[in-house]
């Protein structure tokens, strides 16, 4: 870890002014990923701006019937918030599927969106990594890539985004509110994270001088028919091999609307409008679910160790849809898969 200076920002105005002035500064909130990366010398900010004292820690109703989650609300506070558990149980479930309760007590909503890949090469500065040092190459592509992407990867980078929460936010069509000295803007969740392409060092479309102020949830929370199904190498406290967030609106056994997002398979939570369209107006049954899974995985490509993820996803998607259709979402506590 390199030396850095530390300041606290008391106001949003101050925070965005400070960050705009110093390109080597970073905001720190929960710190669970940033400190981790700093200890490994993957990230070396010259200055940390502590934003924990900004008033971005509330969950409030929005004018359009949704909820606004302040960027500094911790993952725990979101997951156990009565409005969330009642109206957006999919989000609560996804959060509780990730990390540990201690980490969730620290990690914030905004920080969760900005966490970086857990690719072990990215973390190990003795190895080549285009995300860490552009142009050095990707060690994973011909190396140990069991945890890596099967969708949307490039020759430059096959890293995955590690978040569970973001997979649910993707399904919920959340909107990320950001601001800077230049003004505020809203980024639809699907446009927030990037695919690696030829610039894998850039994870998101957030600009360097911008700060996330909130994540807004639209009114529809799919509280009746949803499930978050996460498959991993042990029963808890592990990143996803594949995870599925599924949400349905049903009318007498017929699907009015279907939304599916995948975690652990790409550089961003993966959604595919065509796959969802396939389900619209169809009976909620296994055949249709399997067709949607095939469509979601179209174009999937393995790199050796991670080939199995394609088949695993094809099995997990119909399962999550089945759970959602039955109104029996996967418990994050009882490990038997329903």
């Amino acid at each position: 870890m390199n030396p850095f200076s530390y300041t606290r920002s008391g106001t949003l105005e101050n925070a965005v002014t400070e960050i705009a002035r110093d390109r080597r500064a970073k905001f720190i909130a929960g710190g669970t990923n940033l400190i981790d990366l700093m200890k490994e010398n993957v990230t070396r900010p010259s200055r940390l701006i502590d934003i924990n004292h900004l008033s971005l820690n509330k969950i409030e109703e929005t004018d359009n019937g949704g909820l606004r989650i302040g960027a500094l609300v911790t993952n725990s506070d979101v997951a156990y918030h009565p409005q969330i558990t009642r109206r957006y149980p999919l989000l609560a479930s996804a959060i509780l599927a990730g990390a540990s309760h201690q980490l969730r007590n620290m990690a914030t909503t905004g920080g969760n969106l900005l966490q970086r890949t857990r690719c072990s090469y990215f973390y190990d500065i003795t190895t080549a990594c285009n995300k860490r040092e552009p142009g050095t190459g990707c060690s994973a592509i011909n190396g140990f890539n069991r945890m890596h992407a099967i969708l949307g990867a490039s020759e430059e980078c096959i890293a995955t985004h590690p978040s569970d929460m973001c997979v649910a936010l993707m399904v919920l069509d959340a909107v990320v509110q950001v601001t800077s000295n230049r003004g505020a803007r809203a980024i639809p969740f699907a446009e927030f994270h990037r695919l690696p392409g030829d610039a894998p060092q850039i994870d998101t479309n957030l600009q360097p001088d911008e700060i996330i102020t909130s994540v807004d949830l639209p009114g529809e929370g799919f509280a009746g028919n949803h499930s978050y199904l996460k498959v991993r190498d042990r029963a808890s406290y592990a990143f996803a091999l594949v995870s599925v967030a599924a949400a349905l609106t049903l009318e007498g056994g017929v699907i009015k609307e279907a939304r599916i997002a995948l975690g652990g398979v790409a550089h961003k939570p993966w959604r595919n409008a065509e796959a969802e369209a396939l389900l619209k107006g169809k009976p909620a049954g296994q055949d249709n679910f399997r067709k949607a899974a095939e469509a979601l995985l179209s174009g999937a490509r393995g790199f050796g160790h991670n080939n199995f993820k394609i088949e695993l996803a094809k099995r997990a998607i119909p399962r999550a849809l089945k759970q959602a259709a039955a109104g029996t979402p996967q418990s994050q506590t009882i490990k038997k898969v329903l």
């Binding site: 030396p3 500064a25 970073k26 905001f27 060092q201 994870d203 360097p208 001088d209």
Partner: peptide, 19 residues
């Protein structure tokens, strides 16, 4: 929570300690 993308180089090596 600024954009964590991009790689920072340490620039000039600091030999003095943070206050």
């Amino acid at each position: 929570m600024n954009n964590k993308s991009g790689v920072e180089t340490a620039g000039n090596v600091s030999t003095s300690l943070p206050p």
